[in-house]
């Protein structure tokens, strides 16, 4: 379906559109490389921030909290996953972005981050948003560590921390599964990113602290406009096709890993 819709642009540009960096429908330029790079950058940074938090959530719930608090804390994390993304976007735009700009510029001692809405803002917001998804998978795995293995670990004189690390190693397939699922989420997230990424769809940037664009936010921001140009809509469908392929690939990898490496 997406391919049919995207066909006109492929016929015109070939796959070169994925290698061009300028998006300017008025000038018939439909490059999406800048968005591709933006998607990669934001999701990688987001995952790097989200994974430690997700593991922290799983460990806190399973190892530290008494059972009553466990339910409450777990509910809070689940609620974070249920929150509408547009609310994250709103908060990200008005609170998180300015805060990050302030913090980064203070730490760097100069105007490094020129706008509150940048690839970095999007990355941090994404990290917050995808943490519960990764945490859910890791929690599920963590709960599967058999009591016998736990006794073996403590029996050889492991401290709490050492036991935690050994257990995480035991359920490594779940940690990886959570990683991939969160990565998929981060790459596909649209509205919140569109609200805080800065919407710089015209030019390529690899500077995290500048305004940028991602594939999904390009689609969201440009679709309304696209009807007025012959090739803009096909180009956006081509971008969506790419996104869908990424999504399928990543999720398949995640499911495969979880099923294959079952402890």
């Amino acid at each position: 379906m997406f391919f049919i819709k995207a066909y006109p642009i492929f016929a015109r540009e070939g796959f070169a559109m994925f290698l061009q960096t300028e998006w300017d429908p008025g000038a018939q330029k439909y490059g999406v490389l800048q968005a591709l790079v933006g998607t990669m950058l934001t999701s990688v940074v987001a995952i790097a921030l989200a994974m430690p938090m997700a593991i922290g959530v799983a460990v806190t719930i399973n190892e530290v909290l008494p059972s009553r608090l466990r339910t409450i804390f777990g509910s809070l994390v689940d609620l974070t996953a249920t929150m509408p993304t547009v609310l994250f976007g709103l908060w990200g735009f008005y609170v998180l972005g300015p805060f990050l700009q302030n913090a980064v510029n203070t730490l760097a001692g100069g105007a490094v981050m020129t706008s509150p809405s940048t690839l970095f803002t999007a990355s941090v917001l994404l990290a917050i948003m995808v943490t519960p998804y990764a945490a859910a998978v890791i929690r599920e795995g963590y709960a599967l560590v058999p009591k016998a293995v736990e006794e073996a670990i403590y029996g050889v004189g492991a401290t709490r921390l050492e036991a935690v690390l050994l257990k995480l190693r035991y359920v490594i397939s779940y940690v990886l599964g959570g990683f991939f699922l969160a990565l998929g989420r981060a790459m596909g997230e649209t509205v919140a990113v569109a609200m805080v990424v800065g919407g710089n769809y015209a030019h390529l940037t690899t500077n995290l602290f500048q305004s940028g664009i991602t594939i999904s936010s390009l689609i969201a921001l440009q679709f309304g406009n696209a009807r007025f140009y012959t090739y803009a809509e096909p180009a956006l469908f081509a971008a969506a096709l790419l996104l869908a392929i990424f999504g399928i690939a990543i999720n398949t990898a995640a499911i495969y890993l979880i099923q294959k490496w079952q402890p």
Partner: peptide, 20 residues
Amino acid sequence: LNWIGMGLFVLLGVAATIPL
């Protein structure tokens, strides 16, 4: 190390819910 490590995990876990 045990205390620092466990403390770090809890800190990270709690950090995940603060934005909410």
